[in-house]
Each structure stands twice: as structure tokens, then as C-alpha cells.
Amino acid sequence: MIRIRGLHKSFGGLEVLKGIDLAVERGEVVCVIGPSGSGKSTLLRCVNLLEEPTSGSVTVGGAEVTDPDVDIDRVRRRIGMVFQAFNLFPHLTALENLTIAQRRVLRRDKAEAVRIGRDTLRRVGLTDKETAYPAQLSGGQQQRVAIARALAMDPELMLFDEPTSALDPELVGDVLAVMRALADEGMTMLVVTHEMSFAREVADRVVFMDDGVIVEEGRPEQVVAAPRHPRTRAFLTRVLDPAAARVGEVPDTGPKDSRTGP
């Protein structure tokens, strides 16, 4: 489904991705973990060309995204994306958020778009919220609408960019439940996350990234439970038991800055 070869990405003089090779098969769920600033989100954003790679190639379902002559809008239709900051359209209701791209991009007629929109809202458990505006919804509800917005386009592949990082802890579960159901239905998913339990239980494969390279990848029970590389081990210790850290003992990479407002 996804083939990434020799992917490099620099912002100015800062090299964020230093040669990534990664393949995701159809129906596979791959979780990307790693410290802040390791390049996970940039990698994800290169898959649908929200970031233009500096060099290397990305192919999605046979279409080379990095080819300058590719019809990127056509490729993006097949790739759903879920953002950390939700990025719902605040001037539209939940249902309108789901129908606008169906109508304007896929050219579905209004009745069909609404029918699919309602079905999709039901899948994420928000049947009663179709007339609500994003500002009237909790963070967890907003993120589920955002997932539904992507699903209503019938994507072959879903990208998740830290979908639960902006949520209050008690709201994380609902979003993860939707993602888990999606994985069970066989959706191909590439997920950047800090939720280790999700990675362990749902992922077919876990990729650990640090400093712009893939340090280790494999089955979740291997990477999360029995990491081979010392950097993976250090990271997992910090994530799984943050209270055990001592001042000055481990480098603090700082909180992830949110790139976009809600």
C-alpha cells in the first residue's frame, strides 16, 4: 500500500528525516513511536505530500506521490488523514464537515452525501451530534467527527498524526475505540502515537524512530515489550513510567508544539 524509499526531508538547514525506508501492506496497522522531534509526524505528512520530501520516493497504492506530474488531489482522495488538532471546519456542522468534500471532491449528490455522512457518524457513535458545530463538541467528539470526515471519503488508507495527544485523558478511550474498530475491519493504518497500549494491542508492527531514522521495527510484543536497541529501551522507560525519571538523568525533549490551532 505504501512504499517509502530513501526519504529525506530538511527544513532549512535542519535535517528532520535522514533516509527512511518503510513499507506498509494492505490491511496492515503500523504504529510509529518515538520521542518528540524524531521526525514521526513529518514522515506521516510526507505520505500525502503535506510536506514535500527533499529527496527519496513515496508510492501509495501504485501512485508515486513524489512524481512532479502526479495528480496529488486524486491520490489524496484515497488517503484519509486525522490531525492532532482535529482541524474540523468550525463554520460547518458535524454533518456538513462530512459532506462538503464528498460533494465538492467526489461529486456525490446531496442526498447520497448526507446518507453516507449519517452512516459514518453512526460508526463513530455520534448520531445525535449531526447538527452540532465543532465548538459545541468535546475534544474526543471533535476527533471522532474528524475521523468520520476522513472515512466518508471511502479511503483505502488512514493516516493518524498523534490523534489523542490533544485530548484530556478521560476522552482518549472513545477515540482509540473507534480506531480499534477500524483496524478490526481491515483498514490500512499508519499511526503516529504515544499510546503504548494501543500500539501493543492493535498494531501489526511497531516502528521506533529517533533523530530522523528508524532505529528498530518489528512485532509490537518484540519492540514494545522486549526492545533490542538501547535508545528504544530508554524511550520506553520514560514513556511507560514517567514518574521514575530523575532531574537531569534523561534529556528532556520538551512537549510537542502543536503546529496548528483548532
Binding site: 488523514m81 468534500a101 471532491v105 470526515r149 496548528t260
Partner: peptide, 26 residues
């Protein structure tokens, strides 16, 4: 916010379509 254009483009909207439907109304 920049995320609005990104969300619109990630749904397959062209730049112009995203401006008309998403950015300019806001």
C-alpha cells in the same frame, strides 16, 4: 489557522476549492 488548508487539501480539495469552501468563509 494553517490546519484548515491542510485538512481541506488532505480530503483531496484543490487549493482553489479549499479557498472558496473553507478558507474564505472563515
Amino acid at each position: 489557522p494553517k490546519g484548515q488548508m491542510e485538512a481541506a487539501r488532505s480530503l483531496g480539495m484543490s487549493h482553489g476549492r479549499a479557498m472558496v469552501s473553507i478558507i474564505i468563509p472563515q
